[in-house]
Design a protein around this nucleic acid. Structure first.
Lengths: 342, 342
DNA sequence: ATCACGGATGAGAGCGCTCTCAAGCCGGGG
DNA sequence: CCCCGGCTTGAGAGCGCTCTCATCCGTGAT
């Protein structure tokens, strides 16, 4: 009973050192893979570690070394609901995969209220993590700049705007959208409309750009009447589709900037007696569960979500190791998944 | 330059103490809300804290107090894919909500490989967190017992078996299933089949029990030919539906133990020219996005997922505070969401 | 006025680790 | 044979916080 009211008396560095017959510092070196240890000593220490089942105390290490071995995944609330589908879990899976061989821990932070936002800022300001992964950040979000300011490594999923200054991993939204529209045109559709996301989001802009580019390439006259902005929600998709049909009853295809909006659009089409794909072809974006379960199955642009998660983690780890002066930027290609809706 | 290569020179307890003109211990007391501080002193300290923007160093605190102010959410991989839908994010949202007013951090841990499993065990064994939330644990999972052994507070979502010994939060699967079947019978269905989950999972058993109970109450003859086990996957639902139709072509309703399986079943029904709900009524379980987007909309049993997350966190926090000798057990009620499929 | 008692407070001792630094050891060159 | 340089190693000093304990002060009881 030497005053150890402590954690089940787990072994400490000191004890490992004693057992291996070396000093604390040496054990520390071995644990951290320093090259300045002789082979003999290393082996002795490793044996002692194994025998005692030693696991370093993270808090002590963090305190002494002034790092945390943890990164935060920050998810603004609204997005979690919108993107909930596979996006969310896929990206987490990717991150987790990349972190698996690391000592890094993943902290999950949902941001819903201004209060939580403030707490997060404080939390980050106090350097409670070594780096931050930011998912679906809005253009006007001050967080990335805050992070920049306090020199906290960060990686975004998606850009806030063209010329994003913070390192990011994004998918090729322009290319994906244009492939989708190209496909519709290739199927003989003459009047291709689009339901966009909120246009203050860069991702929505990109998909709209892709739509326009594909039409231009195919030599279609631009017709702004075929463009209807929405908000990535099902209800928004519904309303947009209704407006579109009223304005351009002759349309025979719709590219929706998200599957969820496509689901809404599909409902309106059904209500108005338009068959999919016979009367109107439909293409979505995200290749979410919704797309697979729609009837008919929804053709959709697939983003390599898990891969994005992996890349984000990889880039962040690199940034934590040593900041890259020219901020790393990764853009992953998309893939068109064809189903019966087009 | 007093040798501070440290974290941006953020203020320490010591500095706050100096500024407030008190001792370190007193500041600590104020920070931790100890009652043994005079009003005057408390105010002075709080002012100093505000002025300096002091935020306690978590690592130091963890080291000194031998706690971590973090809990882990452990998710076995397979489940994340199966339940991906809203379940996953809803439960996280619930947990996060409950944790919002706490100092607790949420660590996310995905378990896919035996290696990761081992790392987790080691991690937990080293008391790297104050408690653990376990999502969808299999009956034969050794993790809960390990946790029990090392006296790590834990809460399960769902029971591994009847008479679960670890604290848990579950939804009323029996009641939900029985309500679903009752509903089908109430709609005049005579031959109600069921597609179950893997029967080595307690949750699947419960839903099957509910199915049987409702039939019994309604005075239906038990007919094991109407019971087809599957595995919670879409493909499994498809196969089960096919077998069911072959064996009992006269069936006019199916209760599926998950929406995803219902989606599979629905495809087979369509292929075989059976209309839903005219020929065969369909009910699912989970009330996931799939249910809403099926055509016709799938009647489904809704679990209060977010609420479950909240309860889990709440129970765990209580357990961390002081372990309840009779393990807390919470069962939340379900709700039948009626749509056009029944 | 004196003593005891309870609450408020500060000093001190770590928590387990990393990191710096100087000492110890070896071999080779002068 | 001695000195120097390079490598390995251990000691020591914290990192910022909590917690125990002794001290100090004011108060009511005597």
């Amino acid at each position: 009973m030497t005053g150890t009211r402590r954690s089940g008396g787990r072994p400490t560095l000191e004890q490992v050192a004693a057992r291996a017959g070396v000093g604390r510092g040496t054990v520390s070196r071995v644990i951290n893979g320093s090259p300045r240890v002789s082979e003999r000593t290393r082996e002795a220490v490793e044996r002692a570690v194994a025998e005692l089942g030693y696991v370093p105390n993270r808090a002590a290490r963090a305190l002494a070394a002034n790092r945390t071995d943890a990164i935060a995944l920050v998810i603004p609330e609204t997005e979690t609901r919108l993107f909930a589908e596979p996006y969310f879990s896929d990206i987490i899976r990717g991150i987790s995969t990349e972190l698996a061989d690391t000592e890094m821990q993943l902290l999950l932070t949902l941001i819903r209220t201004p209060k939580e936002r403030h707490r997060l800022a404080q939390f980050l300001g106090a350097h409670r993590v070594d780096g931050v992964l930011l998912v679906s950040v809005h253009a006007d979000d001050p967080l990335p700049d805050l992070l920049e300011e306090i020199e906290m490594p960060a990686v975004l999923s998606g850009r806030r705007a063209a010329g994003e200054s913070v390192p990011y991993v994004d998918s090729d939204n322009v290319g994906g959208a244009s492939a989708a529209v190209e496909h519709l045109i290739g199927r003989g559709r003459r009047s291709v409309a689009t339901i966009t996301g909120p246009l203050d989001m860069y991702v929505a802009q990109c998909r709209l750009d892709g739509y326009r580019q594909a039409l231009a390439v195919a030599g279609h006259e631009p017709d702004e009447g075929l463009v209807e902005p929405a908000d990535f929600t099902e209800e928004g998709g519904r309303r947009a589709m209704a407006r579109l049909l009223e304005r351009r009853p002759e349309l025979d295809a719709v590219f929706c900037a998200s599957d969820v909006m496509a689901a809404g659009a599909r409902q309106v089409l059904r209500e108005q007696g338009r068959r999919v794909p016979e009367d109107v072809a439909l293409v979505g974006f995200d290749d979410s569960a919704v797309a697979r379960h729609m009837d008919p199955g929804l053709t959709s642009v697939r983003q390599p979500t898990e891969e994005m998660g992996r890349m984000m983690a990889r880039v962040l780890l690199a940034e934590i190791g040593e900041r890259d002066p020219d901020r790393p930027q990764v853009v992953l290609t998309t893939e068109l998944i064809r189903r019966a809706s087009s």
